[in-house]
Design a binder for these strands. Structure first.
Lengths: 335, 335
DNA sequence: CTGAAAGCGCTTACAG
DNA sequence: CTGAAAGCGCTTACAG
């Protein structure tokens, strides 16, 4: 049995109330008592029981974080941002891998509720109505990261996807490209899919370049589908000179497929990605891409969450700055 | 206020003991009572409080997992394996990012202890004596993954690093290579560093190839140092025809640097990596590498941990099978 | 089959 | 400055 507050009280010859006071730095005891208590704690190796504390305080100092896949470079970078802030502020984080599965997500929400987490971070997925409903029932604060929603009491932290896509494509245009293809993410994804498609189209239109649907191929942001989509592009739009990929993985896929076809990047084909994962530095050639500050996004969303937990005040949403990281996959057209 | 067991007792007109019994599927009530209780639970939307349960049961259904860096492809794949098994068996997992920092690790151990986790998984790092000491004090089971230690009451799950390195190098030799360099991990790392160096040396010796220290360059398993080490190799051992890299990231670094120098992989230089991260499929050309089954390692270590928690019996360690995944970075010498 | 009561390890008024 | 007591939301003997 681990020693309890009772044991230290007995050892120090005081009441448990007094022990509790010195443990919590509350006022109301002499220096001598304090010393006695600390000595007793030391001697018997006492550690407070956070569960008992949690029961009475109605605070567990624990938050939950939900990801579609924890094992992606994308999610795990956000996770690290969350974890760092949480740890520095005395919170623990329990991770939940939803596999983008509704049932699993709901089950998790249930578990987190029973475990009395103080708050929740929800990442990278659409906040379905049923999630929203249970979340509201749970009566705990939560924040969205790398996603957003229409309810305005729930803050989100993300990049402006439309604008970021627009900027990427405009960057390509500024370099003289006009035959620009889009390696798109999921077609009906309202968060990361549609806005990036719209940004792509808008940039072309603004520069008087007609949108050609055969210059758009769809994947699911991951490498495998990126390869397939890239193959399509190469057959349907063989004259393209540049590609905007809606994720770094798809951009890397484009590089791979191009290599397989003997197409030189960036000499014959320019490619710009999206995310700036660690991956981007490692490709050959290193990938030019739109950076999302994932660590910072995780960090800030955790900060907002903890603030909401502690103040019980609402927090506002935050659009993070994106930027274009120039590496070596884009080259002026015709040079 | 969330409804408690008291509220449902009142609503159902029974005692809280009875509610507790039906909630826990214990014997001792009529079907009619059971129905009444369930109806009450339904009506008031009752959810059990796991914290109160944990206090009395001395079980929190929570485990801790410690990684040097959660955000690496390596750690996060293990994490997913752990998380999957935990979730399927009713456990939650709290993640800890130690940054390989002793103070931070100790602080975490403290927190996990106070939060009364039922067990712990410790990943990828040497289990220092002070960690071992606190862990023993905590009196909870724990298992090591992707690392090992000399205490034989603590089970580990890992690959045979020496053998895996040996096999990788022998694979290169079988393909006719004799000028084989090693892109090593940290020199004094007793887990992933030394055994792989020894495996490399042993394979050479077994095949009558003298070990030449200028064919060995050191990094820390990551991309950046991999690039540096590769540059060294190229200046000190310009005649090498093959490289065994102690991690996929370093292998990718070798590919990048080779490309920069106009050296063709695999035509002029063969490279074999170590890990088989998702990364390995994405390089150009796709990386031949030694596979560690990271997901399975995480999964199994979690299974062992939960079994230890539930049975209070010791578990044995497990050496996982490695294998060579042939992709396109190795070619017979001279072909 | 069912309930009253003790207790898990704490915190927090309340009283002195 | 200090302690006795109630209570957080449960589970579990014990008694009937």
């Amino acid at each position: 049995m681990n020693p309890t507050i009772k044991d230290v009280a007995k050892k120090a010859n005081v009441s448990i109330a007094t022990v509790s006071r010195v443990l919590n730095n509350l006022p109301g005891y002499s220096d001598r008592t304090k010393a006695k208590v600390y000595r007793a704690i030391e001697e018997i190796g006492y550690q407070p029981n956070a569960i008992a504390r949690g029961l009475i305080n109605k605070r567990t100092q624990t938050i939950g974080v939900m990801f579609p896949t924890v094992s992606s470079l994308f999610s795990s970078e956000i996770l690290r941002g969350v974890e760092d802030f949480a740890q520095d502020n005395g919170y623990s984080v329990v991770v939940c891998n939803t596999d983008s599965d509704g049932k699993r997500t709901l089950k998790y929400l249930q578990v987190l509720r029973e475990k009395q987490v103080d708050g929740l971070i929800f990442s990278s997925e659409v906040l379905k109505d049923e999630y929203y409903k249970t979340l509201q029932q749970m009566q705990i604060p939560y924040v969205l990261v790398s996603t957003e929603c229409q309810y305005d009491n729930v803050p989100y932290v993300k990049v402006d996807d439309f604008q970021a896509a627009y900027d990427a494509v405009e960057y390509l245009i500024r370099y003289g490209h006009r035959k620009i293809a889009l390696l798109s993410g999921t077609k009906h994804d309202t968060i990361a899919g549609i806005p990036r498609i719209e940004g792509y189209k808008k940039a072309l239109e603004q520069h008087g370049i007609p949108v050609n649907e055969s210059y758009i191929a769809y994947g699911d942001f991951l490498f495998e589908t990126g390869c397939k989509a890239m193959e399509e592009l190469l057959t349907h739009a063989p004259d393209l000179t540049a590609i905007f990929a809606a994720s770094d993985e798809m951009a890397i896929a484009a590089i791979s497929v191009a290599a397989k076809h003997g197409i030189k990047v960036p000499d014959e084909l320019s490619i710009i990605g999206y995310d700036d994962l660690k991956l981007a530095r490692m490709s050959v050639p290193p990938l030019t891409t739109v950076r999302q500050p994932l660590y910072e996004m995780g960090n800030l969303s955790c900060q907002k969450l903890i603030r909401m937990i502690q103040t019980e005040e609402p927090e506002s949403s935050m659009i993070m700055d994106h930027s274009i990281i120039e590496r070596q996959t884009v080259r002026p057209f015709g040079s």
